[in-house]
Amino acid sequence: MSTPEYLARRLLQLVPTLIAILVVVFALVRLLPGDPASAILGDRALDADVERINREYGFDRPIPVQFGIFVRQVLTGDLGDSTSLKVPVAQLIAERLPITMLLTLMAALISVALAVPLAFVAALCRDRLADGMIRGAFQVGLSMPVFYLGLILLTVFGARLGWFPVGGDGDGLLDLLYHLVLPAITLALSLAAVLMRNLRAAIIDVVDADYVTFARSKGLRGSLVLLRHVLRNALISTVALFGLSIGTLLGGAVVTETVFAIPGAGRLMVDSITGRDYPVVQGLTLALAVLVSLTFLLTDLLQAWLDPRIAR
């Protein structure tokens, strides 16, 4: 199979996934106990209001018809209006989601930058002091809740030392990046731990493989053997894990944004839940799931590029 064929097949696989996402998001509000109208209006809603909402959202129609309406609306970019902010949900998401994506991207880069070199050190010093210390530190990192770590970093490096701002999104892109440094580190640590652990094991598997010994027997430099022969093969499974971890990272972003008062999609999600703003919750859930499935696509392509056996 050629690379374009693989790409086409992988894009085709996106279709059922997107349909499944739509079904789940649709079911979220409608199939859970209680009728959606009173869920939106609260328990003491007047009958007249309930009827109005039912008409407005089509809640009085049969479920399949409702789903049809829902899909048509989503495809035309209409995700309804926020009940509390009175603006289109699509517009809210377009404003807030980029901040969350930026935060997640920074966190992903930081975690890779931490995990790769430390995994090498740990794997090459296997069962010695450096390995034990790196693994111990990451084991603690793995058990540390995002909001707790965030609070500590915020207090120490924000409030106490004053190196970083204590919250918000700043003014302009550069200031935004500056404001996102601490949150991104907070978010990155547990992913770095997961990746480090996986990559360390993969490197240990690969480093005594025949093809690495063969590469050494060719008289290549140690660094070339490590980068071209060891790292590239070890990364294949780590890239898959990285893709699967994006969802966790976005979930962590919801909490991190709350801790650092960053006005991103995560903060919007929490605020909307508190304010019972269901159209926003629904729209955000949909947007985040689509984002994750696109990330899966990207990491699959990256994996296929690393490992020619997948796409050919």
Binding site: V24, G251, M269, I273, T285, L288
Partner: peptide, 23 residues
């Protein structure tokens, strides 16, 4: 397999808090 594909595309925490928000 389809169910798994669908579920893993939702950030776990996001899906859980979305459900909690309704319940």
């Amino acid at each position: 397999g389809r169910v798994v594909d669908a579920v893993i595309t939702f950030p776990f925490l996001v899906l859980v808090i979305a459900i909690v928000s309704v319940l």
